[in-house]
């Protein structure tokens, strides 16, 4: 099947073929890409070697993305990826949406403007998007020029060990915290608290 790569609002479609699975026929998923231009001045340096992508697939891990992008061009090396999936976990506890996908809300800052912590880098991305950073600018440019020439959809292969699916993925109890690690992490907060208590006494 020839691929249609007509850009849409400056974004280039990146077709990814998903093989037949369960009883569903093979299909094509579309991501949309364009060079990343961060509004944040501190990130300006990076923008030159990053790709902004929307509509990422689940299991969008560094490994999987590398495997995917290698199909476009072997010479463009990916350094890291950032991903902000469009996931609203608050639906699990309640009905209706809890998260507004159009906003980035920093509850920490809102509760305390002075001491609140900043959102992490990935949390500042739009929902349903990813930033793929190449080793250098050349890598990005090479990738972009090669991608325009692709004849068929890329193949999405998630059969590696890092992509947990099915039973393996869903038998785990979600979000369990390692007690030892947690103790280390939060011990300081308790000490701080105790000190404050003591002072007050």
């Amino acid at each position: 099947m020839p691929v249609d790569l007509t850009p849409i609002k400056g974004f280039l479609p990146l077709p990814i073929a998903i093989p037949a699975v369960a009883n569903l026929p093979p299909s094509t998923h579309l991501c949309y890409i364009k060079p990343h231009m961060s509004k944040d001045p501190s990130e300006q340096a990076d923008t030159t070697k990053s790709l902004f992508l929307i509509n990422p697939l689940p299991l969008w891990t560094l490994d999987n993305v590398k495997k995917l992008f290698r199909q476009v061009n072997n010479a463009s090396h990916i350094e890291k990826i950032l991903i902000r999936e469009a996931i609203d976990t608050s639906r699990v506890s309640s009905n209706g949406s809890g998260v507004n996908y159009d906003l980035h809300i920093n509850l920490s800052k809102l509760t305390n403007e002075d001491y609140g912590c900043e959102l992490e880098e990935s949390e500042r991305l739009p929902f349903g998007s990813s930033v793929i950073t190449f080793l250098d600018r050349d890598g990005l440019e090479l990738f972009l020029s090669s991608v325009k020439k692709i004849k068929k959809a890329l193949e999405w292969d998630v059969t590696n060990s890092s992509s947990e699916t099915g039973l393996q993925r869903y038998t785990r109890i979600p979000y369990v915290i390692d007690r030892k690690v947690a103790e280390k992490e939060v011990a300081k907060t308790l000490i701080d608290f105790q000190q404050r208590e003591k002072k007050a006494e």
Partner: peptide, 16 residues
């Protein structure tokens, strides 16, 4: 649905 199928992996029998 495809995404669901990929995520569900071996748990899925069919998706209609």
């Amino acid at each position: 649905l495809k995404n669901c199928a990929v995520l569900g992996g071996d748990m899925i029998h069919t998706i209609e």
